[in-house]
Simulated assay, not measured.
Amino acid sequence: MDHTTDVPDKILHVRSVGCDVNIIVGTHDSSGVPFTTVEVLPHEPDEDGVNWLHHGTSSVLVMPVDY
């Protein structure tokens, strides 16, 4: 993955109950295949002192099917 030489086009940061969600558009792997990264980051702890955890994968790559 190449995150350092090309800056991603869009980064969307969504704050929700128990977690933050980052959607990063405009990234690509070393072969040039474009993808979008979706990260779910649990609050550890939140403003009320509650710890949250993710169940399953906290990061997902979305890429074209034909690659």
Results as ranks from 00 to 15, higher is better:
1 M>G: 03
20 D>C: 14
34 P>K: 05
60 V>L: 11
57 T>A: 14
1 M>C: 01
35 F>Y: 15
19 C>Q: 15
50 V>L: 05
9 D>M: 09
64 P>N: 11
53 L>P: 00
31 S>N: 09
7 V>D: 08
54 H>Y: 05
30 S>A: 13
9 D>L: 13
32 G>D: 05
53 L>W: 02
49 G>P: 01
51 N>K: 15
1 M>P: 01
66 D>G: 06
4 T>W: 07
62 V>F: 13
3 H>N: 08
43 H>F: 12
46 D>I: 14
53 L>C: 04
25 V>S: 12
24 I>W: 04
35 F>R: 02
16 S>C: 15
46 D>W: 08
5 T>Y: 00
15 R>A: 10
48 D>P: 00
31 S>T: 14
49 G>K: 10
30 S>F: 03
22 N>E: 14
50 V>T: 15
39 E>M: 09
54 H>E: 11
47 E>Y: 06
6 D>E: 09
19 C>E: 13
18 G>L: 14
21 V>W: 07
7 V>Y: 02
4 T>K: 07
67 Y>V: 10
50 V>F: 12
52 W>H: 09
5 T>M: 02
5 T>C: 08
57 T>Y: 11
38 V>S: 05
54 H>T: 13
48 D>F: 12
63 M>H: 07
16 S>D: 15
64 P>E: 11
17 V>F: 13
4 T>Q: 08
29 D>E: 13
53 L>A: 05
42 P>V: 02
38 V>K: 04
43 H>R: 06
17 V>P: 02
45 P>G: 00
62 V>W: 07
66 D>C: 08
33 V>H: 05
30 S>D: 10
27 T>E: 15
33 V>S: 12
7 V>W: 00
31 S>E: 12
39 E>A: 07
